[in-house]
């Protein structure tokens, strides 16, 4: 009989333990995707409540959408289009988000010695990557004087932006997705979310840890993948950091065996050819998004040099497929075995 009692107590203990695990409020990941900023935005959050997670994600989507309306290059109603329309005419009053994005873009331009330039618009509009149209050398040369970030005049006090020369075109496409990821993370945190991942296309910002208390893992796309599925060339654990990649495979066409892509050298108007892709890791998405373009133009050696100087990490795949990294990435980056 004492054996029965022991058996009974043990069984009941086990049952209580098992069943209590069913009803505990453990945090889970909730993930949603939406087409915004002319791309695919995916937000993942960690929370105990599905309702709270859903509401926070929807709110963050709204924040990105509103921001997108301000800086949309192709919409006549955006503040960015207003600035461009009034280039060489008069200054335009803009919202704090637009002003801040432009200020950050100028900062990246200055720090990279002009390797990144948000006034690249007049050159980029000459190229038609979809229909494989390469502009003439004369047209490229003609528009070059319009490309110079030093001709963006900002008045912070009045919250205005002025482009000095007529026909200048500000294009924030090289920095806005990272900025949008930052805005979304800020909003999620304000709504009480302590961990998550915001991916605006390839511009990803991670904060906090996953439910298993491990960092998020971000895969870096292989710039020369053989299939249409995403092939990963490397992976990196990430928490409270942003990561962005620029590659010559995003918008491009091949003509006479030569690849023409969208990452143009601001001083020449032609694509940069020393890299296949550049991945940058830093605290803010706006910085990783801007500096990956700059380092792509600078090339592997100068790119790694700039990343180190800026206290950022970078992985650069040069035009031969060789991988260059900053010292900070050693031991953190896992290169996939089949590479």
């Amino acid at each position: 009989m004492p054996n029965y009692k022991l058996l009974m107590s043990l069984t009941l203990c086990l049952c209580v333990m098992l069943l209590s695990s069913c009803f505990s409020n453990k945090p889970l990941t909730y993930k949603k995707s939406k087409a915004l900023l002319d791309t695919f935005v995916t937000i993942t959050v960690v929370n105990e409540s599905r309702e709270k997670a859903d509401a926070a994600i929807e709110n963050a989507f709204n924040v990105i959408e509103k921001y997108g309306d301000l800086i949309n290059f192709f919409s006549d109603k955006s503040e960015l289009s207003d600035i461009n329309r009034n280039a060489g005419i008069h200054e335009v009053r803009v919202s704090p988000e637009t002003l801040d994005t432009i200020e950050k873009a100028i900062y990246v331009s200055e720090k990279s010695g002009g390797a990144f330039d948000p006034t690249i618009g007049p050159e980029i509009k000459l190229w038609d990557f979809l229909n494989k149209i390469k502009p003439s050398d004369a047209d490229i040369r003609k528009n070059l004087p319009l490309v110079n970030y030093k001709n963006i005049i900002i008045d912070k006090g009045k919250s205005t932006v002025f482009l000095k020369k007529k026909d200048m075109l500000l294009d924030l496409g090289g920095i806005a997705k990272g900025y949008a990821a930052d805005l979304a993370v800020l909003d999620l945190k304000e709504k009480g979310i302590n961990a998550g991942l915001v991916a605006v296309a390839g511009d990803v910002r991670a904060f906090g840890l996953k439910p298993d208390k491990k960092p998020w893992v971000v895969g870096i796309k292989n710039p020369r993948q053989k299939s249409n599925d995403d092939e990963i060339i490397a992976r990196i654990p990430l928490s409270n950091k942003a990561i962005s990649t620029s590659g010559d495979y995003e918008r491009f066409f091949v003509m006479d065996g030569q690849r023409f892509h969208h990452l143009l050298i601001p001083q020449t108007g032609y694509p940069a050819y020393t890299c296949q892709s550049v991945t940058v890791i830093a605290d803010k998405g706006v910085m990783t998004d801007g500096f990956d373009n700059a380092m792509f133009v600078l090339g592997p050696e100068k790119g790694i040099e700039l990343a180190t100087k800026m206290g950022m990490d970078a992985m650069i795949i040069d035009n031969k497929g060789d991988i260059h990294t900053t010292a900070g990435l050693q031991g953190k980056l896992t290169i996939e075995r089949d590479h």
């Binding site: 993942t44 991942l197 870096i220 796309k221 892709s277 991945t279």
Partner: peptide, 13 residues
């Protein structure tokens, strides 16, 4: 399915 196999939470690039 592929991401799960690879243990990847997001892709940059």
């Amino acid at each position: 399915k592929k991401d799960k196999q690879q243990g990847i939470d997001a892709i940059t690039g």
